[in-house]
Amino acid sequence: MQVLPCPFCGPRSEGEFHFAAETGKTRPDTTRDVSAEKWAAYLFDQTNEKGVTREIWIHLPCAEVFVMSRDSVTMDVLGTETLRKLPT
């Protein structure tokens, strides 16, 4: 059981988190033609990096969607970035 850091809540048990997606995918603009290949890549392509990887995770209790960098071999968490505008 890992301890993962939520950018808002701090360290919490792995069971409170869901993996959402790898980073780097942007929804194609569907008001224009989107080729089948491009749409399929958006839906299904995964890089499954061995080693350092950047992923989108959700902390379920506070619903924070954030970016987590981690090492998929050692399971070390390297850092998180919030996707939210921080209060000024």
Binding site: A20, R27, I56, I58, L60, A63, E64, V65, L83, R84, K85
Partner: peptide, 15 residues
Amino acid sequence: TGMLESWRQDGNDPD
């Protein structure tokens, strides 16, 4: 609720 929350924060303005 979870589906709405993820679309809200990913690709929309959650504020």
